[in-house]
């Protein structure tokens, strides 16, 4: 009953730990997640595929996870560890807000993710537990959303206009860079519908060049996982809503 608001400190007191690196986990890598600014906030998207080597492990994986009403994470790397990190952060942010009666600052949230990545260093160095996530958060003071990307050791960098992670992110970052320079409109001036359609087209592009990226098939109703973050908080864009946007532009 110390009430200091630090859930990560609370775990060892009760013999719980977030460490999961026992050297026996199956390495599931390769994925595509990305985020970019659009006119009304930030859009974070990802595919549904999890792979182990050349084996498709699952095509129903959720990689864009809401941490609280003002932040979300896009996971890339070892799913077992990445999902556990997301769950730990989710609980830590909720615990802080409820116990301290105020939301955790954006800086503290980013540091919490850095700390988890740094604590995961042994698994990263052994080569089976690498995690390289994206983080999008809203500053409670300014209500402005920001995008950050991390290296597997925990260093954080702001993606001023966009960020991507995973094996298929290279081609997506290239397209986003091109559109930011010469697009009309540029992504940061797009409406929600335009940004959602762009996200689906980007994933289709990435899947063309990366077998580990699950594609999008509008004809079958398969769309990306897409969440948006703006002054109103985190919101999911359902497949039905994505289908409606897709129909509007008749691509």
């Amino acid at each position: 009953m110390n009430g200091d608001g630090d859930f990560l400190s609370l775990l060892p007191q009760t013999a719980l730990t977030t460490a999961r690196g026992d050297g026996k986990a199956v390495a599931l890598e390769a994925t595509t997640v990305f985020a970019f600014h659009y006119a009304d906030g930030v859009i974070v998207a990802g595919d549904h595929r999890a792979t182990a080597g050349n084996v498709v492990f699952s095509d129903r994986t959720e990689k864009i996870l809401e941490l609280d009403r003002h932040s979300l994470i896009a996971i890339a790397g070892s799913p077992a560890i990445a999902v556990e990190m997301a769950r730990t952060l989710q609980t830590a942010f909720d615990f802080y807000r409820r116990s301290q009666l105020q939301p955790m600052s954006l800086q503290a949230k980013m540091r919490a993710l850095s700390r988890l990545l740094h604590d995961n260093l042994p698994a990263t160095l052994q080569g089976f537990g690498t995690v390289a996530p994206l983080f999008a958060g809203l500053d409670p003071a300014t209500m402005r959303p920001s995008i950050y990307f991390y290296d597997p050791l925990g260093a954080q960098f702001e993606g001023v206009k966009h960020a991507g992670s995973g094996s298929g992110s290279g081609s997506i970052k290239s397209v986003l860079h091109f559109l930011e320079q010469w697009g009309s409109p540029t992504p940061e001036k797009m409406t929600l519908g335009e940004a959602v359609n762009l996200a689906n087209r980007l994933l289709m592009t990435a899947a063309e060049f990366d077998t580990a990226t699950g594609g999008v098939d509008p004809l079958r109703g398969d769309f990306a996982t897409i969440k948006v973050l703006n002054g109103a908080g985190v919101r999911s864009i359902t497949p039905a809503a994505q289908a409606a946007f897709w129909q509007e532009v008749k691509p």
């Binding site: 009953m1 859930f7 775990l11 719980l16």
Partner: peptide, 18 residues
């Protein structure tokens, strides 16, 4: 009230996390 609140919040979050 604060003691009760903190006790229940800690118990709830440990249970939910575990």
């Amino acid at each position: 009230i604060e003691k009760i609140r903190q006790t229940v919040i800690e118990a709830a979050h440990l249970e939910g996390f575990t």
